[in-house]
């Protein structure tokens, strides 16, 4: 219940507003105290993670949901950067993308994504997927303790 008191910070890196809304709706239905942060492209995502600029006070996310096909900086790059960074690499990063291309899967795992999920086409499935994420990553899995920047 301690976890429940503290909201779970999830960074969603997604460029499609539609998909953003869906994700939001799905998380809302999950019932967990999840605070969804948004980054529309890779640059923003890195800025958020590095607490640069307007994101100076951004919290460190407990989970990153990362789409691969992003403008400006591609999700793969972001993944690579995250996993290179000493501080950031401990954050579980889940690839959430429409692509089921084997190559993409391989690259993602090679870049040390924690998990690769394919966005379902239907809402029901989507909803169910988010619930699974909740159930697994946010309930069952132990996440490393975050040190809040002062």
């Amino acid at each position: 219940m301690e976890d429940d008191e503290m909201p779970i910070e999830v960074l969603l890196v997604e460029d499609s507003p539609g998909d953003v809304r869906l994700t939001q709706e799905a998380f809302r239905d999950s019932g967990k105290p999840v605070r969804l942060h948004l980054a529309a492209d890779g640059i923003e995502a890195m800025a958020f993670l590095r607490r640069e600029g307007i994101y100076a006070n951004a919290p460190r996310p407990d989970l990153i949901l990362l789409d691969l096909n992003l403008p400006k900086m591609d999700g793969r790059e972001v993944l690579a950067l995250i996993k290179k960074d000493q501080d950031l690499k401990i954050i579980p990063t889940i690839i959430l993308t429409t692509s089921d291309d084997e190559a993409d899967v391989m690259i993602s795992y090679q870049l040390q994504a924690n998990c690769y999920l394919r966005k379902p086409a239907h809402w029901d499935a989507f909803d169910s997927l988010v619930r699974s994420i909740n159930a697994f990553w946010l309930t069952r899995a132990k996440l490393p303790q975050q040190m809040q920047n002062v």
């Binding site: 499609s16 539609g18 998909d19 869906l22 429409t98 966005k119 086409a121 239907h122 809402w123 989507f126």
Partner: peptide, 19 residues
């Protein structure tokens, strides 16, 4: 990819609507 994306939106939201 690119074709499926809009389709997914349509399908998902209409479903969400229905729900």
């Amino acid at each position: 990819h690119d074709l499926q994306e809009p389709l997914r939106m349509v399908a998902s939201y209409t479903q969400l609507l229905s729900r």
